[in-house]
């Protein structure tokens, strides 16, 4: 038995240590079937990382799919109870189109989901757990946090339409300050509002640096509410070492709201962890509960320097 650890691959070791971390933090293992009815993904196609899904017809004629995503299955199979908190973790294969080869790839993914009564305390604990997950991979890591609520409130206060907001969010994700300025110019915003919107790109960094600067976004009562919420969450976190506040962490605002985050480890050129609140997806699926979760992409860890 002692030799088992020695023969494990790097991904397996990380996967087991993450499972242990999540179990220690009160999360229950969530097992799911390999397949889901294709219908689930058709209705929520834009939520998927890649829109393509491997499908097949089951023996009873139903069109089935190999899971491209875990979150949708967990929501579908869970009870809607806004007064309780369900905490689960998973370790599953998903099937997505790889950007490089344009062909399907099996990806090992571990992660957690909290569904139900999600308050600031729960959000802070999920962020702490995300950071602890990164620390399991490498001591040189960064957790980047944004509050989509602040971004949306600032853009709403400036009167941007839905399609304009979508374009600005894309530019924000690219840290493209000049393109954002062009949008503001087209909208004929005042110099002060243009400055506020472009600061969504330039205001970033560790919590001690950024938290005092957030007041520059307080241009409406909604903005103030969201700023307070972010401050309260960060204050509740147990450890903010290596935590960066950066509004360029964006997400599709049709599904995500509030806190959104990504994790990076030195030596890996892409994010290895991604998560956030998805109350809007829950509402689209007829749920009243709140939700937050994250996934760790184990296949990306091959090149981490902690290896």
């Amino acid at each position: 038995m002692e030799n088992i650890y020695e023969v494990m691959t790097y991904d397996e070791k990380i996967a087991f240590s993450l499972r242990s971390l999540y179990a220690q933090n009160g999360y229950n293992k969530y097992r799911m079937s390999k397949f889901e009815e294709y219908d689930l993904y058709v209705k929520n196609k834009d939520f998927l990382v890649s829109g393509n899904v491997i499908t097949f017809t089951d023996t009873d004629g139903r069109l089935m799919a190999l899971k491209p995503d875990v979150t949708l299955s967990i929501i579908k199979n869970s009870k809607d109870n806004p007064n309780e908190l369900m905490k689960v973790y998973y370790n599953e294969h998903v099937y997505r189109v790889s950007k490089g080869t344009h062909s399907f790839k099996e990806i090992m993914q571990a992660g957690v989901e909290c569904l139900g009564k999600v308050d600031n305390g729960v959000i802070a604990s999920v962020l702490d757990l995300a950071k602890a997950s990164l620390n399991k991979v490498s001591s040189s890591c960064a957790l980047e946090i944004s509050n989509l609520g602040i971004v949306e409130a600032v853009l709403d206060a400036c009167g941007f339409t839905k399609s304009e907001k979508r374009e600005i969010v894309v530019a924000l994700g690219e840290k493209n300050e000049q393109l954002i300025k062009e949008h503001c110019l087209r909208k004929e915003l005042s110099a002060s509002l243009t400055d506020t919107v472009t600061k969504l790109v330039s205001v970033y960094g560790n919590c001690d640096k950024v938290l005092p600067l957030l007041d520059c976004f307080a241009i409406s009562s909604e903005c103030e509410k969201e700023i307070q919420s972010l401050r309260a969450i960060i204050a509740t976190m147990k450890n903010t070492d290596g935590v960066i506040i950066d509004f360029s962490v964006t997400g599709d605002m049709r599904y995500y709201n509030g806190i959104s985050f990504k994790g990076f480890v030195e030596g890996v050129p892409v994010s290895v962890l991604s998560g956030g609140q998805y109350d809007k997806l829950m509402a689209k699926m007829g749920r009243k509960s709140g939700a937050i979760g994250f996934a760790v992409y184990l296949d990306e860890l091959d090149r981490s320097e902690g290896r």
Binding site: A142, K175, G205, F264, E266, P269, V270
Partner: peptide, 11 residues
């Protein structure tokens, strides 16, 4: 242009 991950460690 900048790599999104490397930007965190060499910002």
């Amino acid at each position: 242009i900048a790599n999104k991950a490397n930007f965190k460690f060499k910002s």
